[in-house]
Design a protein around this nucleic acid. Structure first.
Lengths: 146, 146
DNA sequence: TTCCTTGCAAACGATTTGCATTGGA
DNA sequence: TCCAATGCAAATCGTTTGCAAGGAA
């Protein structure tokens, strides 16, 4: 996945939403494209080196999430991490470290993914629930905390 | 699942952990036994009617979670909800409403659960990750927000 | 008596917002 | 030009903690 192709799609989607794809927002995109999992505002600030104020990062993340180009992930200690929406990055799941809170992406074999999807629909129907997506979180300890 | 049988197990486990099973903590248990999903400190305060200070609730929840009788669930807006640990309530998954943040419990058919479990181990090994558990979240809109 | 627990109020930390300024189409 | 976006500081809100009082073993 190249940053430029993702950039095109995001620029277009943000345009449709009536918001600008500013340099600050492009920096957020490039940081997330380079990441192997969701990132918090604080992590992005560090990763981006250049001093972007947290308030701007939070605003960019909120705008991009409500335009559907980013997806939030709620972790421990009230920290929200964002990643590219699945239509940009592909469907995947997460390995969540119960010690440090870090999150890594993983993909499931198609066979199980299909089974899972089917099951989610069934189960949602029974719960009078409109299923829009699903997320499998594998909880444990990451390589660093092991 | 009766409150009294769960009470016994919790009392015993808390005893092993060297903490008391006070009336406040018993109230938390009864509220969670009566719930069909995880509850936040604020929700428990409302549900319990009697005015238990939030700080006490937070402390009870923290103590009970670190003793392994409660499990935390991190939701939107930095809200942490707790539920009985799986050894007390049975293994299950969640329907999470993306509008109001409410969480309902669901159970998967044994067949898929088995497949899922096996897969989680495989995938964790590949990621040099020690898998301790897994959680499937079905995201969508609940009956009320539909 | 000894240590755990509780209440209240103050402190924290992640996130949000008001407001004046800047910047892009 | 004009409105969205940004920076800074102040405000929110869920959660945590210090400290003195209460309670069980």
């Amino acid at each position: 996945m190249t940053t430029s192709s993702v950039d095109q799609q995001i620029r277009s989607r943000l345009g449709d939403a009536g918001v600008r794809y500013t340099t600050g927002r492009q920096r957020v995109t490039s940081a997330l494209v380079a990441s192997d999992g969701p990132r918090s505002a604080a992590e992005l600030q560090t990763q981006l080196g250049s001093a972007i104020p947290l308030s701007s990062l939070y605003r960019s993340l909120a705008v991009m999430a409500s335009a559907g180009v980013l997806a939030p992930h709620h972790g421990s200690q009230g920290v929200t991490r964002y990643e590219l929406a699945e239509w940009l990055s592909g469907h995947h799941h997460h390995l969540v470290c119960i010690d440090c809170g870090s999150v890594d992406d993983i993909e499931l074999p198609d066979a199980l993914e299909a089974t899972l999807h089917e099951l989610v629909d069934t189960v949602a129907d029974e719960g009078h629930f409109v299923a829009l997506g699903h997320a499998l979180e594998v909880e444990g300890r990451c390589k660093a905390c092991k």
